[in-house]
Amino acid sequence: MFEATLQKASTLKKVIEAIKDLVTDGNIEVSETGMNLQAMDSSHVSLVSLVLHTDMFEHFRCDRNVTLGINLPNFAKILKCSGNDDSVTLKAQDDGENLAIVFESEGQERVSEFELKLMDIDAESLGIPDQDYNTNVKMSSAEFQRIVRDMTVLGDTCSIGCTKEGVKFSVSGDLGQGNITLRQTNSVDKEEEAVTIEMDEPVELNFALRYLGFFTKASPLCPRVTISMSPDVPIVVAYNVGGEKDTEGAGSLSFYLAPKIDE
């Protein structure tokens, strides 16, 4: 059987909220190392990879690997029933048909029990190579969300260009064009707002704003986002889960999107 308790139900709630609009059904693979979910959106344009290591759980027991086929919007509906400071326990029997979800308030005076029906999901799994990227930009996740939203006003494709000086987001559409440049700033008052750029060569790639917009729904998870790019390969937009700022969290939520190419 599988049983795991997360001290903050809100973390799981934010994770599922972040992906439920992009991916409807997904398999959460549970093993002794933790919980993982990999899924593509319905048009197979982007990929979500969620990794929750056992370290981030208060209690984690998994006797045998289990696959939990989950309808994410429905899971999100149940997670919304948790209180802000509740813990959450997930339980599933081997080959069980349901996922039990139990919320407990801090003083354990309120216990809520739910069951979510599991599904058989036929999803293909992809091997994501562990690669170094030409450019890694770390910035405020709220700022990235705002830029993507602002770019969407003007068009559907955004160019992200990066040099040592800064990162430039550009868009053009029927009503005009716009761009926003963020300069590399290591010495700002608020550490969370710093823009740091590690890069080998300047790079500029074009991305569909619709998908970047989906990715930024993960902003409440972490004040910082890491954007990694290399020529002709998918961009990675990554958020730490259950960690602080830039430090490695005990989990991560990464989104992959291929750059647009000229026909």
Binding site: L47, S125, G127, V233, D262
Partner: peptide, 14 residues
Amino acid sequence: QQQQPKISSFFNKK
């Protein structure tokens, strides 16, 4: 005109 490649064309199937 730009084309959107599928993500599956970048990663190998497991």
